[in-house]
Amino acid sequence: MKGIIETQDLNLFYGEFQALKNINLAVRRKTITAFIGPSGCGKSTLLRSFNRMNDLIEGVRMTGRVLIDGNDIQNSHTDLVTLRKKVGMVFQRPNPFPLSIAENILFGPQIHRTAKKDEYEQIVEESLKSVLLWDTLKDKLDRNALNLSLEQQQRLCIARLLPVKPEVLLMDEPCSALDPVATERIEDLMRVLKENYTIVIVTHNMQQAARVSDDTGFMLLGELIEFHRTEMIFTNPVDQRTSDYITGRFG
């Protein structure tokens, strides 16, 4: 088995429109993989097919296979709860629940009944420590999460995933709502999390892909044009279109 996520001839249609065309790739375990490309190239759609969030959209049809740990998640008896526990997702706009900080973190353990009440305190502490929020928030755990800064909200959204014990973290433009300083700090966090998790990030920002990722895929009009080690994509791309995009000739 090559990767924790693999796709085989993956095609996806929104009604008549084909958003993904014959995608074949393998994501290596405990690395950061970035997908770049202009708006509408299908990179978010690809990301959302790894935890079947596209199911929420009406009129979506898929062919081909998506394998997580070798299991085809496309077939109808895939348990979505198990899949989404294993493959967590961080969204473009931070979306903490309008509940307290502690309740946000305990949401996963509570719905999955994976922890006892006397473990809650420890879970909150560990999760917040992993995203480096514990020191600032330890006295404000019962505050509404919506009052945090956007960066803190996004960190909280990452922290909320951890007690569910995912293996993969999908991040859909996680820094697009943040300022450059906050972006840099989230990128540092991703490098730390890479020790324990496989991270797949979709980004508009080529520099971000170059800075944090190990592998990069360049997408254009639903096709995966090129998928290689990041330094190769940015220094010696094989395809002319990749080269044109990363040098800023379009996009």
Binding site: V81, G88, N95, F97, G108, V164
Partner: peptide, 23 residues
């Protein structure tokens, strides 16, 4: 986005409704 977040965490539809949306 709240519903999406809940579902992405593995919540069932009813869990998303009563734990997040209703609150």
């Amino acid at each position: 986005k709240y519903k999406e977040a809940a579902l992405a965490l593995g919540a069932t539809r009813w869990q998303a409704i009563h734990r997040v949306i209703l609150r």
